[in-house]
């Protein structure tokens, strides 16, 4: 299980990285944490001719907060978010999701952006990005463009990114309401495994406990992380009691186009979508109390 040969290059800047991507096109592949790419290369399922290492690009490693946005550089390691008090305070949902991501050793190396670009449908970080309606900032040699996470994921490992583009940063909207709660619920066979199904929810409540805003999404069930803004809208203005949650979870499960595989059938995944959606909402409501 050894990778096919490749040329390795470590650019000094993002601009240089983008120039390399432009030069080599689909023959080049960016490597950040490598926690998904290196195994694929070991099995020769991926065999780039050029491997462009962006691990050291400081311009991809910033975390910044302004009024209602937390911006995370694509090459920020997952463990850094776990330890970053600003990120934890402003984006607790990402912190909760990270508890389900792999293990200490993979989070020490894996990056936020790498998980998004790899686009495993059961991965946690892409789901959070979709649910919170994050904006992905993509750069190539000549331009910067933006795409919403919800528009980014097409199918397992298929995304809107072009071969010459590099994900530079992810802008997560932060919620400013006084009472915000969130939760990330996952069903996996073992801890640290890919999710059979995951659900995450974030809610903002007014003083009476009525919903001002709600965001919900399901991962692992369908070919891409599935944000369900229409379900969130259903909940606005309502007390998030058991009935409301059951209705929302049912609507969520109905909207999912579930897939089956070795570990779970489509029916089981649809069922789990309903269960995890309900639990995520209930837990988010409790978190907002």
């Amino acid at each position: 299980m050894k990778a096919a040969p490749f040329e390795y290059v470590r650019p000094e800047s993002l601009a240089e990285a983008c120039a390399l991507l432009e030069e080599h096109g689909p023959d080049a592949k960016l490597i950040a944490g490598g926690q998904s790419l290196v195994p694929m290369m070991a099995m020769r399922l991926a065999r780039p001719a050029w491997l462009v290492d962006i691990n050291r690009l400081e311009e991809l490693k910033a975390i910044s907060i302004d009024d209602n946005t937390l911006t995370i550089g694509a090459a920020v390691r997952q463990c850094v978010i776990e330890r970053d008090s600003g990120a934890q305070a402003n984006l607790p949902l990402l912190g909760r999701a990270l508890k389900w991501v792999g293990h200490v050793q993979t989070r020490n190396r894996g990056t936020v952006g790498g998980s998004i670009v790899h686009a495993d449908p059961s991965a946690e970080i892409p789901l959070v990005a979709c649910v919170l309606d994050a904006t992905l900032v993509l750069k190539d040699a000549s331009a910067t463009s933006e795409v919403q996470a919800r528009e980014f994921f097409f199918a397992p490992m298929v995304t809107a990114i072009a071969p010459e583009q590099c994900l530079a940063e992810i802008r997560f909207p932060t919620w400013g309401e006084a009472r915000v709660g969130c939760a990330f619920i996952e069903v996996s066979i073992r801890h640290g495994d890919f999710a059979l199904v995951s659900a995450c929810a974030q809610v903002a409540l007014d003083e009476e406990g009525r919903c001002i805003r709600a965001a919900l999404g399901i991962g692992g069930a369908s070919p891409f992380p599935h944000a369900l803004p229409e379900v969130g809208e259903m909940l606005v203005g309502r007390k998030l009691d058991e009935l409301a949650i059951v209705e929302a979870a049912g609507a969520a499960a109905d909207l999912i186009d579930a897939d089956g595989d070795l570990h779970a059938t489509a029916d089981y995944r649809r069922h789990l979508a309903r269960v995890t959606a309900a639990r995520a909402l209930a837990s988010a409501v409790e978190d907002a109390q």
């Binding site: 050793q105 020490n108 190396r109």
Partner: peptide, 12 residues
């Protein structure tokens, strides 16, 4: 920091 050494290349 603990990492998996099969998931990176020596040159990195």
């Amino acid at each position: 920091e603990p990492v998996r050494s099969c998931l990176m290349y020596a040159v990195q």
